[in-house]
Design a protein around this nucleic acid. Structure first.
Lengths: 188, 188
DNA sequence: CGTTGGCTTGAGAGGGCTCAAGGCCAGTGG
DNA sequence: CCACTGGCCTTGAGCCCTCTCAAGCCAACG
């Protein structure tokens, strides 16, 4: 159960056995059925979540009732709402499971304590935050391109996940309509 | 010269005098004339930069020769290319000065050393990274909205900077054409 | 005072959206 | 075991928001 997260951490910092133990003891395990919510608009997000099985999508629903996908999360990814965690305000996002899913969750307040006890853990979170930041910059650049180019970029990066996500959700992630995405895919 | 950056840091962590001294000794000062480059496409980005006077814009130039503004930076903001810093690869961005500008720069390798010597400094960078991440998420959400809504959101957040930046650069930041932005502003 | 850079305005075109209808499949319950 | 239903994908037609191209204007500056 903990192999995936320990391996993920070990790619960036090396915790000694006690530190690993301490960190793992702060985690809670949670399973979700397909379509079940991990977080709903209006709630306060108090945990960050690490996916060990399945997949989720994070999205906001706008005034016209349209869903805008902020991100997906598969095995080995973190997901949560840092805006809500940092400010303590209710989230604007929903996070729900696309498949039957298992996550490890850590409370934000506990994590802040752990950062004092295990500086290397703070380093780990700094580093993955930097990577997440860079990924969003890339995405913003691609949102300036045509629908076709956005899909091509998505496919080259995340093509292996494509079967696991409904086309309409991918379209929303790319900022185009489902119809347009469908036409692109059926072109050649 | 160092007041602004020390005050910025103190909003998130409190360094003791020796730590402040150590950190400040790692900084270099640089001045740029309007239109001068801080970073150019193809170079490796080895420093992060903190603006103490003036303003800059970070942008990529695409195949059609169009500039896409990634972000602006004013006094009290950090700017650099983390992708290039993390991977050691040449940057795709240009950063140039919109006004006569002064920055404090810190070498990435030196910063990594300082993180070991001053854990609170690592905390500071983790925190500002989280804030930057959240800001990009917000921007992605707004890139799904109409040209008018994007400008309204920009105005409410950064309206006080508007006079300091050419309209065409704001248009690029918002992902719309200069003409469209102009029409929006001259409507009512 | 000519040149350059940025803003303004008009006209036409087009990429992608909306609306709508139909098809396909998997899951469910009678 | 099969009909039904809901969810998702497909395809067509028309429209609209925003882009592109083009020309003119103005202010700053060397």
């Amino acid at each position: 159960m903990y192999d995936l997260i320990l391996h993920n951490i070990s790619r960036h910092v090396s915790l000694d056995p006690q530190e690993q133990e301490l960190f793992l003891s702060a985690l809670k395990h949670r399973t979700l059925r397909r379509k079940e919510f991990l977080l709903q608009e209006g709630e306060r997000c108090r945990h960050d979540h690490f996916v060990i099985k399945g997949s989720l999508r994070q999205y906001e629903t706008d005034e016209e009732g349209r869903d805008n996908v902020m991100q997906f999360a598969f095995e080995d990814w973190w997901i949560g709402d840092w805006y809500s965690m940092l400010t303590g305000t209710p989230t604007v996002f929903n996070i729900d499971a696309l498949e039957d899913t298992e996550v490890l969750m850590i409370e934000k307040t506990r994590l802040d304590e752990l950062f004092l006890e295990i500086p290397k853990l703070e380093r780990y979170f700094r580093i993955i935050m930097q990577h997440a930041f860079v990924a969003l910059q890339h995405r913003i650049l691609f949102l300036q391109k045509s629908a076709e180019e956005r899909y091509a970029d998505f496919y080259s990066r995340y093509g292996h996940f494509e079967q696991r996500v409904a086309q309409q959700h991918i379209a929303s992630y790319l900022g185009i309509s489902r119809e347009t995405l469908n036409r692109i895919k059926n072109k050649q």
